[in-house]
Amino acid sequence: MPAAASRAVITPAVDRFAVGVYDFASFTARFFVELVRPPWHPRAFVEQCMEIGVRSLPLISLTAFVVGFVFTTQSRPSLASFGASSWLPSLITIAIVRALAPLVTALICSGRVGSHIGAELGSMRVTEQIDAMEVSAINPFKYLVFTRTLATTFMIPTLTMFSGIVAMTGSFLNVAAHERTSLPAYVWDGFDQISFLDLWSLLVRAVVFGFTIGIISCYQGYHASGGTRGVGRAANAAVVLSMFAIFIEEALIVQVIGALRGD
């Protein structure tokens, strides 16, 4: 390609995008380097698990319960028209395990946790608190980014399991009220169609989504600049980019799992 044409292709915007992708890849790679290098700051990790996991429980519980209850209500007429109301537990369980629990939990957490991490680290960056760590010979990446990303990677799968149970509880209460089904029967029917691959893919999804939320939110906050506006932008970008990445990952994982299942 002639030099003039190549200059036209690599515009400043393309250049910035390429540099951004490289920076993010380096940032992500650094997480894995730090994973095998002490110290690991267990106290900071536990604090983040509390912040990310325990404090998300009320919102996750409410959302999961409503999703399970409402999805059951909305599905009943369609199944009833075929005389297949007895399939409700199976349908709802498949929907929760294969899609709703990991996706709803990840989206809720990308909003609550992503904005929190983005704003917190962004604020620390613009007020020079991260520089203060660095000049005190403290590795801010290890103390701030590593512990938060590890905490999201551990806690979002835990929250996903929890939200799945709560969603199924909401669904069971609905089914029990209308179809007079007992809990053992509901669980038996529900898990009849669930395979080990479904549970495994649920866990893989949750781990991938948790890591994604942590690393993207930390990256945005860690590189914030421009005062309070920069903090706002970092928090916003943490949420939007986490959600965007989760949708892309979900689409890819569904394809892979489908291929493994032989769909």
Partner: peptide
């Protein structure tokens, strides 16, 4: 860095 103390303009507490 352990041998250098740094006092920031806005304290950075």
């Amino acid at each position: 860095r352990v041998r250098i103390g740094y006092s920031f303009q806005h304290s950075a507490l």
